[in-house]
Structures are given as C-alpha cells and as structure tokens.
C-alpha cells in the first residue's frame, strides 16, 4: 500500500526577478513501512522534496497525496492537523524545546493532540526507554549530547505513531559512531512500529541502512539504484 503518491511535483522559488526551479516534475511513490533514503548533492532538491511531503512547504504544481489525502490544497489548520497526526519530523539540528525536559519534549505532540497527560506520559516513558535515555528522562536538552538529543527527537517523532517519519540529514551534525547508532535506532523503530522512514543524506555510509534509495539531481529523480 502506498503511503505517499507524488505526481508531476514542481517547486519554484522566486529569487529577485528570476525563478529558481527546485523540483522540475517529480513522480514518486512510497510504500507503508519503507525505510527510504533520498540522496543527492547539495541543492539537488532533496530537502525541498522532504519539506513538501512534510507539509512544511507548499508545492508550486503537481499532486502530493499523503495517506491517500491530497495535501496541496489544504488550509493551514488542516495542514497542521496532518503534520500532527500523520507525520513525524527529525531535524538536522535536533530542534527540541529548550525549556522542557526529555520526557516533556517527547510527550509534547501528544498533549497537542489533547491526549490525557497520563496517557502521554506513559507513551513517552515507553519511548524514552526504547531510545535508551531512561536515565536522562528529566534532563533538559542543554544537558544532553548531540546524539542524545537526536534520540529524543526520534522518540518525539514516533510518539504519535505517525504514518511517516521524515528526517532531513539526521546524522549530519553527529560523529560517525553516533550517526550509525542513530540510524540503527531509526531502523529498529521502523521495524518495531512499522513506520515509514524517509531520510535525506549525502553520506554514503548511511546508505547501507536504507531499504530503498532514491537519487535526486537538479530537481528530478534519477533511476533508483539497487537497494542495499
């Protein structure tokens, strides 16, 4: 079953008087439970593609269906609801809420969904254990290492049991050992929760974790290489 279905997706950015095309007509389908990597050089359009799938950036034209729902013509409120209920994000810079501790950061999306505090706390405790940060549950982000913060981000992305987790270069700011452990964790969660993971990278070392690799260049998807 396809969780993402993209057709003829184009994205242009105005730059002064000129228009810079970031995506020139992308067609892509992603199946439920995929652990997919989007690779390509800087400026190829991989972040743009992830942002559009994640309902963060609107498409210029084309069709993007997430979980069977067209997302290109939704209101801000509807789009926010999709981001909250269907998608999890892992950012390159670990973006956590600085004033909340680890558990509070993880349960934050559940509280936005109006889940009961007890239920949210229970789920957060489960995930903090799964990402191996039980001993750091009440620490603030500033008290954690980069790798630990990214683990918190992964737990937070998974806490709502989203259909898709999008990760934009999740290991870019980590050393290779920590990066590998993060990818292993993502892979583990992919298998554990059957969540679709799409992550962008230009680090060849991380490709071995991907079940599927999509290569993008100059805003167009190239022929998919053989999965590892």
């Amino acid at each position: 079953m396809d969780i993402i279905n993209i057709k003829e997706l184009k994205k242009d950015y105005p730059l002064g008087d000129t228009i810079v095309p970031a995506l020139r007509g992308v067609d892509l389908t992603v199946a439920q439970g995929d652990f997919m990597s989007i690779i390509g050089p800087s400026g190829s359009g991989k972040t743009t593609l992830l942002n559009i799938i994640g309902c963060i950036d609107p498409a210029t034209s084309g069709s993007v269906q997430v979980g069977g729902r067209e997302i290109t013509d939704l209101t801000d409120r509807q789009i926010t609801e999709i981001r909250l209920n269907k998608i999890g994000f892992i950012f390159q810079t670990f973006n956590l809420i600085p004033v909340l501790d680890v558990l509070e950061n993880i349960e934050f999306p559940l509280l936005l969904m109006k889940r009961s505090p007890a239920e949210a706390r229970k789920r957060a405790e489960q995930l903090v254990e799964e990402v191996g940060l039980k001993d750091y549950a009440v620490h603030r982000p500033s008290e954690l290492s980069g790798g630990q913060r990214q683990r918190v981000a992964i737990a937070r992305a998974l806490v709502t049991k989203p259909d898709i987790v999008l990760a934009d270069e999740p290991t870019a700011n980590l050393d290779s050992v920590t990066g590998a452990s993060i990818l292993e964790l993502m892979k583990k969660m992919n298998e554990l929760e059957n969540t679709t993971f799409i992550f962008s990278t230009h680090d060849a070392n991380v490709l071995k974790y991907a079940c599927r690799i999509v290569k993008i260049k100059d805003g167009l998807i190239e022929k998919e290489p053989v999965a590892a």
């Binding site: 926010t80 209920n85 973006n95 956590l96 600085p98 934050f108 936005l112 709502t160």
Partner: peptide, 16 residues
Amino acid sequence: ASEIGMMRAIGAHKTF
C-alpha cells in the same frame, strides 16, 4: 523563530 517554527512543524496550531 527556530523553536516556534519547530513547534509549528510538529503540529502546534497558531492558537497554541
């Protein structure tokens, strides 16, 4: 802006 944008990205409404 980063913190607020991240909150919006993970599903916080404008009202929040």
